[in-house]
């Protein structure tokens, strides 16, 4: 299975020399996760022995073939899925459930269809946890909408919007609570190339401002390189960490002048990622053939 960087499975010693002063914000240690099928008495292992640390303020992208457990990993951090083995910690504390410090952008939007765009965004501010004073809600919602470029659609219902617009509502809803950790599950999957790039640039700007920690799932190699500080490549199911790649490209990457996409380093990382993922796809095919 090719070379695996030492970082993909940080031992105690390695974790110590990475950031001696500051402990990792998110730490997954030897996590195995899966889903039980009670009817057939089987257990599907989605992730196996995954160890990973996410530093405060880091932008971590996760790539890997479909069904390799990316959403499962993000759900572990969110607190929806409990690990079968190992542990997931945020700020050193074991994750037992969702918390106001972690907001999520869902792969399938998960907007409330009976609420207008504005009221969907307010939903994040009006509940018991992470409650924002009423007077402040409208202003914050308006700011979040401006950020994702949806001013003027406050009164629209989700079914009146395109897929990309719905996803932007989902992003605005996650941003409006100003969470410490932003979990994003293929947030730009349903957006056209032009809008996608505009939103990537916007996201980079937002993150630079808010200093949020982001865990970002994507199927696009370019997107991962453009946005991330580090990229985690997950192998096909059961998902294990294949490699962790440092993206040492200068920021901001969406600046008019900076032509990151044409830099040789970008090309290097890109072709390396390509070969890794092609391996995975090939492996999956061969395995299918021998079955």
């Amino acid at each position: 299975m090719g070379q695996v960087e030492a970082r993909s499975a940080p031992g105690a010693q390695h974790a110590a020399d990475e950031r001696p002063s500051e402990p990792a914000l998110i730490e997954a240690a030897h996590v195995t996760a899966g889903y039980d099928n009670r009817r057939e008495h089987t257990r599907l292992i989605a992730l196996r022995d995954v160890s990973l640390q996410v530093r405060r303020g880091e932008f971590l992208a996760i790539v890997g073939p479909s069904g390799c457990g990316k959403t499962t990993f993000i759900n572990l951090i969110a607190g929806f899925v409990k690990p079968l083995e190992g542990s997931v910690r945020v700020r050193g504390e074991e994750v037992t459930g969702p918390g106001a410090d972690r907001a999520m952008v869902f792969q399938d939007y998960a907007l409330l269809p009976w609420r207008t765009v504005e009221r969907n965004i307010r939903f994040a501010m009006e509940n018991r946890r992470g409650h924002v004073p009423k007077a402040e809600q409208a202003e914050r919602a308006a700011r979040a909408l401006r950020l994702v470029g949806l001013t003027g659609f406050e009164k629209s219902y989700p079914h009146e919007l395109s897929g990309g617009m719905r996803q932007r509502v989902g992003i605005a809803r996650a941003l409006v609570t100003e969470p410490e950790i932003l979990l994003m599950d293929e947030p730009f999957g349903a957006v056209d190339a032009m809008t996608r790039e505009a939103m990537q640039a916007e996201l980079e700007k937002i993150i630079a401002e808010t200093r949020q920690t982001v865990v970002f799932i994507t199927h696009s190699i370019d997107e991962a390189i453009l946005l991330a500080d580090r990229i985690v490549v997950i192998s096909k199911r059961p998902g294990t960490i294949r490699e962790v790649i440092d993206v040492d490209l200068p920021r901001p990457r969406f600046d008019e002048q900076s032509d990151v996409q044409r830099s040789p380093r970008f090309g290097e990382i890109r072709s390396h990622l390509w070969s890794l993922l092609a391996d995975e796809a090939l492996g999956a095919k061969q395995e299918g053939a021998t079955r």
């Binding site: 459930g97 969702p98 907001a103 998960a110 409330l112 939903f123 509940n127 018991r128 946890r129």
Partner: peptide, 19 residues
């Protein structure tokens, strides 16, 4: 996923039922 969104965005159990 709607229930999950409710949980992520801080709704308590009664709020999940209500909203």
């Amino acid at each position: 996923s709607l229930v999950r969104a409710g949980v992520v965005f801080g709704a308590s159990r009664p709020q999940i039922y209500l909203k």
